[in-house]
Nucleic acid binder design. Structure first.
Length: 261
DNA sequence: ATGTCTACTGATAGTAGA
């Protein structure tokens, strides 16, 4: 079974591109972020045609998350309690015996902006909420755009980035608190020393220059980690395809040795 | 510093957010 996470940066603008990726990679479950579309305008029929059921938490213009699945989904999470003002950023479902949730964590903008403190508070609420709904021993995945660079190796700037937005001690502590709940970074479990990125700024030629950050993660509990056979950042799908513009994020996917009943 | 992209608006170019 193949699971994936992808910040698509506008689902309506990206729909044809997303379709190309789904057909190329054939994932079973996908967490999408930054849909930037209301639930009324969500292109459900396009995914239906491709054989995917959808669980959507949409919002006009900003944010928005969804789970696509080839298997039957039972919705279990919609939003982070107490953080409704920060928009549609968390949705989850139970699929094929797996708890699968996807998050679009706040960006924070810059260290002086009030959204930076709000980002930290959002993380604190997530770390409180998650264990109230998901047991550490159950097979579970929390994936998404976390807007945090966990370690210097995850930044094109290396340790020179330390202290700047996405690279602060405060953000790393919050991300670490999720790992302390028993969630493990599937990519890092498979590729301990590989420097690779999942996001590149559209500006200043960041992608061709190799100036990226690894901020998109598939986090899994131990029962999931034990089943992982491969994890890849699909860098090829950060490139233009058939004249279509890519998201500024690449998809990240993992293959699990998983029985779908 | 910023060479881009998306979606919004009493829109039809300018702005905000990332």
């Amino acid at each position: 079974m193949r699971i994936a996470t992808w910040n698509v940066n506008g689902l309506r603008a990206r729909l044809d591109y997303v379709r190309i990726w789904l057909e190329a990679r054939q994932p079973d479950i996908v967490g999408l972020q930054e849909l930037k579309v209301s639930e009324e305008e969500f292109p459900a029929s396009a995914f239906d045609d491709l054989g995917f059921e959808v669980v959507v938490y949409g919002q006009k213009a900003w944010n928005g998350v969804a789970v696509l699945t080839r298997h039957r989904a039972e919705p279990i999470l919609r939003g982070l309690p107490g953080q409704e003002d920060f928009g549609a950023r968390l949705v989850g479902a139970r699929i094929a015996g797996l708890t699968f949730a996807t998050a679009y964590c706040p960006n924070g903008k810059d260290l002086a902006h009030q959204d930076f403190a709000r980002k930290l508070a959002w993380y604190d609420d997530l770390a409180r909420f998650w264990p109230s709904r998901v047991a550490e021993e159950e097979p579970a995945v929390l994936c998404g755009d976390f807007n945090v660079v966990p370690s210097p190796i995850d930044s094109w700037r290396g340790a020179d980035g330390d202290g700047s937005i996405f690279h602060t001690r405060e953000e790393r502590t919050r991300f670490g608190a999720l790992l302390d709940l028993g969630l493990r970074d599937l990519y890092r479990e498979k590729h301990a020393d590989r420097q690779a990125y999942s996001w590149w700024d559209y500006r200043a030629g960041a992608f061709p220059r190799g100036r990226g950050l690894r901020i998109d993660f598939l986090l899994g509990t131990s029962t999931v980690v034990d089943r992982v056979t491969a994890v890849e950042i699909d860098r090829d799908f950060r490139k233009k395809k058939e004249g279509l513009t890519a998201s500024d994020h690449a998809p990240v996917y993992a293959d699990l040795d998983w029985e779908v009943s």
